[in-house]
Design a protein around this nucleic acid. Structure first.
Lengths: 352, 352
DNA sequence: GGTTAGCACTCTCCAGGTTAGAGTGCTAAC
DNA sequence: GTTAGCACTCTAACCTGGAGAGTGCTAACC
């Protein structure tokens, strides 16, 4: 009432923005609710505490900040963080030392699996939060080589080499027993005729051929079809990710305060499903994406933010990497780190 | 002075043993320091609190129990637990339901990798602590099949099938570029001539042959030797284990009380080294082994106990499984569970 | 009219004191 | 040898009263 904003309702005036920015920055720095006095002293605003109080009161009405109790300073809400990240954030260019560390560690010519692990470790080490990288996978798996080995009891070990250097092995159960020679032939047949196609295509084509010319098929092809049908099913979980430095999250009191919540979070990491869904979403968009607290839509991530960026090879998005930490994270530092890591990982995978 | 023990110094009289037993059981049950009154009431000892106090005083002098402060009841020391486990424990036979759950889940004929994961999950689920199973590995890896595929830039993807159904793949760098055909021949050569031998033997033999008859070697053999030398190196870490239910440990206040300690523990799980050492030790002995607190020799396991048992196939120990939890665990329940799981896992692996 | 100083008020946090409860050790009686 | 009784000790829980921080309101100021 006393101090209505000078801008249209719901839109922040310039001064309010400056106050919000200072408040969020201060809160990110030391995690204590921020009071008007502190802000007047250290915020670089050239405003008196009283004025700041008025502005903060407006901010609270608009839902950008929140007061834990009557006399405790203000804390940014999710909405406050969102506005901060979208409109107020000044992304700090990446520290030279950190950049060179990334460069050194993500050297081209390392195995994919390996470099993915390294990226995850780096993200975790540099940000001191949890680093996560989804494994390249999925939709357009291109078959390179197939090998079948007989096991005891009508079981067959299928080894698939996909996308140059990814090895997957599955144990499948077959209708009848196959000899080693039969399996070898079947493998050779599949490798010879289908290398370069995706698992999905191979499967579809085999099924079609079988339907069209059931009677003309020889033993080898029949065996091949039998095997392929079972072993080329879409990968078991549908994907996976590598996580590093979960335990870093124990250092943040807003998370470790309730062991209960921490446990939920860690359980989610182990089950992977929800986290993976979220990361998958991120693969669609370009560039750095940020989920703040509940925005992610997953309850376990309450109080956490997730900063991600997709990485690619030859223009095709292979996966997503990012960082998971408390909402109160140093976005201006984390964003360029995630961005740079994604670029360097892409570079490392491309230059072969 | 007043109540000297009626047995030789350091050896516990019958009554003292009964008191210690009741005390440890009580403490395991509710985690509070146990006082004389409680023990007189619920311990089934038919002794008055005063008498129990005298006995407890003796036990404290002998180092079996400890008083956190003047008036707080007694808590078992590591030595107390040790004596309890060695001499007083009455192992409860396994609950029928639990046993049948184990039986059902550890059915024979499942893939090794898979069944190991299942065992770990089971241990964790039934005991509500952390379950751990070392992966079958190491010393006597028997080679079954070798495949080499060329990658770009003088790199080769080596796929080794070991011990029937274990697949390992490594990327190696070679001195010169090899063609796909050469690599295929090399792989076939190795598979044909060395299947059934351990990686170590193969390597040794190849090196010997090379030394003896360097000039007579044909292209295929040279390539094979080059490959094998690099890809048959003892496996990267030297071993590994599967862990399940770490987060269960967060439920125990003696561990979760200090997030610091919990963090150390979780870091140890991630780094695996120390835990793996300990588990390796256990593979030597037969039957169930128990490490209580500091006994393990690893600082991170302070406050934790580890109960393990080796599992085997055809008489040969393949690995170790067990449970990690707070010192204050229900040994009489955990021991038969670990024991049974080891037996059933062995059975599942044998009956092929 | 926006900005600021002043002030009364609220709330948390902490230190200190008090109490209730639990447990002990000792002594004396059984 | 065992037990009841009692004085003593220690902790945890609770209350209490500042101290400090922060707020909202009002009135004065530019």
């Amino acid at each position: 009432m006393a101090h209505t904003n000078d801008s249209p309702a719901g839109v922040l005036g310039d001064r309010a923005q400056r106050v919000l920015k200072a408040l969020v920055e201060q809160y990110i720095e030391d995690g204590e609710p921020v009071g008007s006095r502190t802000l007047a002293r250290d915020g670089g605003l050239a405003l008196s505490p009283a004025t700041i109080r008025n502005v903060m009161s407006d901010l609270e009405d608009l839902g950008y900040v929140h007061s834990p109790h009557t006399s405790a300073g203000r804390v940014p809400t999710v909405r406050g963080y969102r506005f901060f990240v979208d409109s107020l954030l000044e992304v700090r260019p990446l520290d030279g030392e950190e950049l060179s560390r990334l460069r050194r560690s993500l050297a081209p010519g390392t195995g994919t699996q390996e470099v993915v692990g390294i990226a995850s470790d780096l993200l975790s080490a540099i940000t001191r939060m949890a680093g996560v990288v989804t494994l390249p996978r999925g939709r357009s798996d291109s078959l390179r080589h197939v090998e079948f080995l007989p096991l005891e009891g009508r079981r067959v070990l299928a080894i698939l080499v996909i996308d140059e250097e990814r090895v997957e092995n599955r144990i499948i159960r077959t209708a009848r027993e196959y000899s080693a020679a039969e399996l070898e032939q079947a493998g050779n047949y599949l490798t010879r005729n289908f290398a370069g196609k995706t698992l999905r295509e191979v499967r579809r084509q085999l099924v079609r051929e079988m339907r069209e010319a059931r009677e003309h098929l020889d033993r080898v092809m029949l065996a091949a079809i039998d095997m392929a049908e079972k072993s080329f099913e879409p990968a078991d979980g549908g994907g996976d990710f590598v996580l590093a430095g979960q335990t870093n999250l124990m250092d943040f009191r807003e998370l470790s305060g309730s062991v209960e919540r921490l446990r939920l979070l860690f359980d989610a990491f182990n089950q992977k499903r929800e986290i993976l869904h979220l990361l998958d979403e991120c693969a669609r968009a370009e560039g750095v994406r940020i989920f703040i607290g509940e925005e992610s839509g997953y309850e376990v991530l309450d109080g956490c933010s997730v900063v991600t960026a997709p990485y690619q090879r030859e223009g095709r998005v292979l996966g997503v990497l990012g960082v998971i930490g408390p909402t109160r994270m140093a976005y201006e530092r984390v964003i360029p780190i995630v961005d740079a890591t994604a670029r360097l990982l892409s570079a490392a995978l491309n230059s072969r």
